[in-house]
Amino acid sequence: MKDDGQPVLLFEQVSKWYGPVIGLNQVTLELRRGITGLVGANGSGKSTLLRLATGQLKPTLGRVTVRGVDAWEWRAKALVGYCPDNDAFYEDMPGREFVAAMARLCGFEKAEALRRTEAVLERVGMADRADRKIGGYSKGMRQRIKLAQALLNDPQMLVLDEPLSGIDPIGRQEMLELFRGLAAEGKCLLVSSHELEELEKLTDHVAILTRGRIAAVGTVTQIRDMLDDQPLSVRIDVHDPRRLATLLVNRLEVVGVELEPKVLANGTHESLIVRARNPRRFFEDFGKLVVSEELDVARLEPLDDTAHAVLGYLLGGSGKT
């Protein structure tokens, strides 16, 4: 596939408002060939971003283009294959009939549509099971059918919203192989997921989305290094903050400790604000410290939301540490 230097997908300062609620906030993103993972918690703006990329939504501000064509335009849709998260089908149709209908709706002649239908069903491993009605399919089979229809027009860009959800481990492996194969053909894949761990098996290039903003883009290693250099403030509610402050001051990664007078519900606890340089290592050490010193920690709250979310993913959570 030719790469004429033009990005496949381009978000230029894109914001999307739903009434008073902001869904996406000044996102600038440029995707070329290969796989990009999009990670974010529920409500972080992943689906909004994907729906903007597939022309289902119009940006309130900024511009979204696919190979230079406005994503809202119907011509852009000929370049995109979309596998939605939503599990709504024409339940009474057999999978094969559904995919063939989608092929006809892409504008192919009947014979060509049928040929492509068989090809994509074969590719997603559904060729021998596609004659049953979709209503009777398992979650995994439904995911495969969604993926099949996205491949029909041999798109330059594939937008996959949670494509692995509901697929069993063996099927998941097959899907990952398929995605790698598509990337090797020179296609651009944008794959969203809640779990960074899952995406790490597929790609090293991720974008972390939090509260409608791109919090970090790059390889997982790059993001980890970037985060290590950025100090993080953490508020800790503890029974005896002075003793904890003494214990923390000796740690290398702690660059500052501040006592915040705060009377808690039982009238005894106070808060401590800690600034740590290497948050990942700090949290590991802090955990050990709590256990060894039997500290009564009531609350642990990172004060920087973006860093917190990114850190959450890097620690293997879902963005909410």
Binding site: L105, G107, F108, E109, E118, A119, D154
Partner: peptide
């Protein structure tokens, strides 16, 4: 089985099928 060279996509054909 792979999808080969791009085949002609006609919006009119797609629209008629949609009807």
């Amino acid at each position: 089985m792979m999808l080969e060279a791009p085949a002609a996509q006609s919006p009119l054909r797609a629209w008629l099928f949609l009807v």
